[in-house]
Simulated scan of single mutants.
Amino acid sequence: MRSQSEPASAEPGAIARPPLVRELLLVAGLFLVYKFGRQLATGHTAEALHNAHRIWDLERTLHLPSEVDVQSALLHGDTLVHLANTYYATVHFPATLAFLVWLYLKRPAHYVWARRVLAAVTAAALVLPFTFPLAPPRMLAASGLIDTARIYGPSVYGPPARDHLSNQFAAMPSLHFGWALMVAIGLIVATRSRWRWLWLLHPAITLLVIIGTANHYWLDAIAATAMLGAALALIHPPHRTATTAGRGTRHLVAEEPALVGAGR
């Protein structure tokens, strides 16, 4: 019987923290694949703009809210639109990295699960730029939207022809939104605080930011959500088995997350 002062990892069946060096390499690889993998599908400007018109028309057919309305709300003040641009430019990577670091230190089994899900979604998302290059709405004159980052700053993109660090014709899916949604879901699953549902504010704000700054369409976020849903259906979160110790105290034991159909 384990005393309450012993670490959770001493519990039979608990998951040991993965080796740090290996995880640093894996997470660094995930970010590099995301950052540089899209460059392999650069170009296709005419096709990307043609697909942008198709997406814009499809959204109107589906009666989705207009991206113009969201951007108009941001443009009521320079401060608000500048904050939105800053959120887009600075929160995406640090928030995801902080999420993974916290899970690694505090919830090792949940960390393994979350890392697998993020890797699966990122890998799947890199396929679409090859098969469906898509220009963001800020490049679509018919949308009536402006490039808020270029006008108000800060901007993370240069002119598409000279931008060698990103593929601006890879708007679908929005990994900004997909990763933000996974951060929220991961923290909700891994914690028990009554306030944990407030983590959903992160993907909600991210959604308004990517739409209002004209970097993504609604359908980009919907596609990312579908990919994340598929990954979550295939990659199980760690199960928590309640055991009784001492005076009725319940301890939670995390088991290794597994793919559907895989042995545990």
Results as ranks from 00 to 15, higher is better:
193 S>R: 09
116 R>F: 03
97 L>M: 15
239 H>Y: 04
196 R>N: 11
64 L>F: 10
68 V>N: 01
170 A>W: 09
100 L>Q: 08
96 T>C: 04
116 R>A: 13
64 L>W: 03
181 L>V: 00
137 P>F: 02
141 A>L: 13
160 P>Q: 13
223 A>Y: 03
245 A>C: 07
60 R>H: 15
217 Y>K: 06
50 H>N: 08
222 I>Q: 03
40 L>Y: 02
78 D>E: 15
180 A>T: 00
96 T>S: 06
177 F>Y: 12
214 A>N: 07
80 L>R: 01
142 A>H: 12
26 L>N: 06
135 A>R: 04
173 P>D: 10
227 M>R: 03
145 L>K: 06
205 I>T: 06
245 A>Y: 11
172 M>L: 15
74 L>V: 05
165 L>E: 10
168 Q>P: 12
118 L>I: 02
20 L>G: 03
223 A>Q: 05
197 W>M: 03
259 L>G: 04
250 R>K: 12
58 L>A: 15
102 W>E: 04
86 T>W: 14
75 L>R: 13
186 G>Y: 03
27 V>A: 12
90 T>M: 13
146 I>D: 04
140 L>G: 08
9 S>F: 14
156 V>P: 11
262 A>F: 09
61 T>F: 14
263 G>A: 05
214 A>Q: 05
145 L>M: 15
180 A>E: 01
152 Y>S: 05
103 L>V: 05
91 V>H: 00
57 D>G: 01
134 L>D: 10
204 A>D: 00
237 P>R: 11
61 T>V: 15
